[in-house]
Amino acid sequence: MTLNGIGLVAALATFFGVWIGHVTVRKVEYHAPNLRGPMLIALIIGVTLEVVALSSDSLYVSGACGILGMTALFDALEFRRQFKRVKKGHAQANPSNPRHAPLLANGQATTIDLLKREPTGQVITYKEQAA
């Protein structure tokens, strides 16, 4: 029996596309003084990969590029969503980033990574979060 590797290729493209996108969006949003450049780069990468997906005769190449391209296009939007999380205090703000500094000065954002802890099974109060 011959094994069909297209599912494995699609799985790897999905997992690594989501993982790399997840980490990159957070790191770039944290450091970048302006989000237009990173958004444009993600858009170009996404469109290029989709063009490759449409032009390739190989199901493997087409499938992998189609998935990675869509995750890159989604990441272009994620930069804005990540900034909204920073504004709400749901993601770490960078004091040396000119987009984040005014939010920190207004007490709107936080430099604490509130998610960097183990679950306790209890509701955590604001003071406990900050501790």
Partner: peptide, 17 residues
């Protein structure tokens, strides 16, 4: 044109959603 990858990419977005 091979629409397999594009369609799979769109389906992936829904599955991730």
């Amino acid at each position: 044109m091979n629409f397999f990858g594009l369609a799979l990419g769109i389906a992936t977005l829904f599955i991730i959603g």
